[in-house]
């Protein structure tokens, strides 16, 4: 088996004195989609931030494409091919739709995705490309946030709660893009509250509870009951 794309070994992290993650380990293979689930406050967003180098890691290692990236500043990770769709989207308010995308393209890698291909994936963005990013609807803003990750042509995208606050119809629109994204060879980790949606999209699942890994395995091998137990304990 080749080196995993992302390999996390006994990662612990937190904010200041507060420890939010304890000894998390898992591997993600190239081309796979992992669902990261767990109740609110279980440490999912903290794990993303720790992987992205946005938190000082207390201990453990993170390997990306076989190279250790522990302690590397976030801007070098982006160049290595690691991108994030942050919770709440965090679009740049002073920038138009296209400027948000261009900024990411300027600082990312060259590859399959460019603005043209992205506009074919999300035609509405081309129509509104000169509008201020925050003037768009929630679903459209989420498309910009996803597009911002895509045009950097990363190997791996971390999606943080992309359906949060969106209407079910809009969520369908956003998720409709997933096959194209995965099909272009990009791997993904999805944080998502909607378990059914995760099960449809992800190859494997990891469940966190109170900062610890409570469950891990291929999606097909995990039943609903296992997830309930992992969420809330026995």
């Amino acid at each position: 088996m080749p080196d995993p794309l992302l390999s996390i070994d006994r990662l612990s992290s937190g904010y200041g004195d507060f420890q939010a993650l304890f000894d998390i380990s898992f591997d993600l293979q190239q081309g796979h989609v992992m669902g990261l689930i767990g109740a609110n406050g279980a440490g999912k967003t903290t794990l993303f931030k720790a992987i992205m180098g946005l938190l000082p890691r207390s201990k453990g290692t993170v390997h990306f494409q076989g190279k250790p990236i522990g302690g590397a500043p976030a801007n070098t990770l982006a160049r290595l091919g690691l991108a994030m769709v942050p919770e709440g989207r965090r679009l740049f308010r002073s920038l138009s739709v296209e400027e948000n995308l261009r900024l990411a393209a300027d600082h990312g890698r060259k590859g399959h995705w460019d603005l043209g291909k992205l506009y074919r994936l999300f035609p509405i963005l081309e129509e509104k490309r000169h509008q201020p990013a925050l003037s768009l609807s929630g679903g459209q803003q989420q498309m910009v946030a996803i597009g911002r990750a895509l045009v950097a042509n990363p190997h791996l995208i971390l999606f943080d709660e992309i359906s949060l606050g969106l209407a079910p119809v809009v969520i369908n629109d956003v998720y409709a893009a997933m096959p194209d994204i995965v099909g272009s060879g990009i791997s993904a980790i999805l944080v998502e509250q909607d378990i059914d949606r995760v099960r449809k999209t992800a190859d494997m699942l990891v469940c966190l509870r109170e900062g610890r890994k409570a469950l891990q395995g291929p999606t097909a091998a995990i039943g609903k009951h296992d997830i309930t137990v992992a969420y809330f304990g026995e």
């Binding site: 992205m52 946005l54 500043p73 976030a74 801007n75 990770l77 982006a78 160049r79 991108a83 994030m84 942050p86 965090r90 740049f92 308010r93 002073s94 920038l95 400027e99 948000n100 261009r102 900024l103 990411a104 300027d106 600082h107 990312g108 911002r148 950097a152």
Partner: peptide, 24 residues
């Protein structure tokens, strides 16, 4: 310009700009 976009983005949200690859 590209640098102008980076200036505005960093001013809006330095953390997200860094995550995108801007060398703040």
């Amino acid at each position: 310009t590209a640098i102008g976009r980076a200036f505005r983005a960093t001013s809006d949200d330095p953390e997200t700009a860094t995550a995108i690859g801007v060398k703040t």
